[in-house]
Design a protein around this nucleic acid. Structure first.
Lengths: 218, 218
DNA sequence: TCTGTCGAAATTGCATACAATTGCCCAAAA
DNA sequence: TTTTGGGCAATTGTATGCAATTTCGACAGA
C-alpha cells in the first residue's frame, strides 16, 4: 500500500509538529488518538508512537491515563526556554570559536557580510531567512552533534512564542552589529568573547519578547 | 494482571535502560522486540514504545526496518558526548551562580564540606555517590528545566563510557579541590568563574577516560 | 571454489481487537 | 437547589494478527 520509506510514525510526528509550530494546533488543545487516526486515515498505533516522540521533544504533554495535550507553557516555562536557548546559542558560539575550520570561518564571514548588505537595504524577509541560516551555521560550526541537535530542537520549541523581532525599524541594523561582534570573536578564536557576545545578542532577542529582563550578572 | 500505575512502557524503558547502563546489554547488541517481549512477559506493543523512548534519549539506535541496537558510539561520538557534557555542566554552574537561592547555596556548601570529609577519609564509594548528588544539586540550582533535564540525560548517556574515575589514589582529593573552586564561584555569584571552573573540572574527568585531551582555551 | 540469484524464514511496521480506568452525566436525596 | 453516588461512555493501555521487507542460506552456474 505505502511505497514510502519514511515510516508513517515519522511522517505523522512531522505533520503534528508542523501543526503545532504553525499555530493551527493551539496550546492546550487535546490530541486524542482516535481523532488523529481518523484524520490522517491511519490506525492508532503509529499515532501513539508519533505522540510519544513529540512528548520527548517537549511539544506535547502526556499523562499516563489522561491523554496528550499540546504543551501550554506557563510564562515561567517560556522564560526558561528563552534562557536555555540563549545559553545553548552561546555555547555553540564558544565551541565554534574553538573548532571551526578555516573554510567554515570564511563562509561565516561571507554570510555575515551578505547580511550586512541586507540590513542596509532594509530587506527584512531576506534578512530573517539569512539569520536562521547564520545561526544554524554556528551550531554546525560547534562540531558537536549532541549540542547542535539540542540547540536546533530548542529553537523549534521557542518558535511558537517568538514575535517578529525585525519589525521594529533599526532592529535590523542593531542585530547585524551584534552579529559583527560575534563573528569577530569566532574568527579570532576568542571562545569566551564569542560566548559573551552571543549571549548578549540572543538575550536581546529575548527581551523583544517582553520577558522580565534581569539575569545579568558578573 | 497489572495493578501498577506506572505504565508498562515506562517500566520497560527503565529496565532496558538499566541493562544498558550497568553494562549487561553491551553496545552493538541487537534488541529484537519478540525476545524482549518474551523476556519480560508482555506483548510487543509496550516493548516497541519503550524502544522508541530509548531511541529518542540516545541510548539505542533504530533504523526503519532494521530493528534496534544498543548505541555503539565511535570514539569521535564519545568524545563529542564528553565535550557536550562538560559544556552543559559548565552552563549549569553558570546559571546556578546567578539563580541559586540562599538556601540552595547553603546546602551546596554543606554538601561540599561533607564531601571534603569523605575525601580526607578516602571513602571512595560514599564520595562517588555524594558526587552524583553534588552535580545534580547544581543542575537543579540552575533553575532551568530544559537545561537541567538535558544535562541529566547527557550524564546518563555518557555513563556507559565512563571508567571509574576515583580509583586512582589522590584523584579524590583533587576532585574535591576542584569542587571547592566551583563552589566558591557559585556562592559568590561569579557566573563566568563558575563556568570556567566547572569546565575545567569536568574536562579533567574526561581526560581520565583517556580522550585525546586538548580543547582548553582562554 | 567462488559468486550471484532466488527463496524462505524471521522481524518489523501497521491494523484491529480487547481490557481497564477515568471522567462525566444524570438521578436521587438532603 | 445542591451534593453525592452510581452507572455508562469514551479514551487510553495492552495484546494479537497480518502484511511487507529484509536478511540469511542454499543451490546453481561459471
Amino acid at each position: 500500500m505505502q511505497t514510502d520509506n519514511p515510516t508513517l510514525t515519522e511522517k505523522l510526528a512531522s505533520a503534528i509538529a508542523d501543526g503545532i509550530l504553525d499555530g493551527s494546533l493551539t496550546p492546550g488543545l487535546r490530541l486524542d488518538e482516535n481523532s488523529l487516526a481518523r484524520q490522517y486515515g491511519v490506525s492508532r498505533t503509529p499515532v501513539r508512537e508519533a505522540l510519544r516522540q513529540l512528548m520527548r521533544s517537549g511539544l506535547i504533554d502526556m499523562r499516563p491515563r489522561k491523554g496528550a495535550v499540546v504543551s501550554k507553557a506557563t510564562p515561567g516555562q517560556v522564560e526558561s526556554l528563552f534562557v536555555a536557548m540563549a545559553e545553548m546559542e552561546a555555547t555553540c558560539a564558544r565551541l565554534a570559536a574553538m573548532s571551526m575550520t578555516p573554510v567554515e570561518r570564511r563562509r561565516l564571514q561571507a554570510r555575515h557580510e551578505a547580511m550586512t548588505a541586507l540590513a542596509a537595504a532594509g530587506d527584512r524577509a531576506a534578512y530573517s531567512d539569512a539569520n536562521v541560516a547564520f545561526h544554524s551555521a554556528i551550531y554546525a560550526g560547534a562540531h558537536n552533534e549532541p549540542i547542535a541537535e539540542y540547540t536546533l530542537g530548542l529553537r523549534r520549541r521557542v518558535g511558537p512564542f517568538r514575535r517578529a523581532q525585525f519589525n521594529v525599524d533599526g532592529r535590523l541594523v542593531l542585530s547585524n552589529r551584534e552579529h559583527d561582534t560575534v563573528v569577530r570573536a569566532i574568527l579570532s578564536g576568542d571562545a569566551a568573547g564569542a560566548h559573551a557576545a552571543m549571549l548578549h545578542h540572543v538575550s536581546l532577542v529575548e527581551d523583544a519578547f517582553e520577558t522580565f529582563a534581569a539575569t545579568s550578572a558578573a
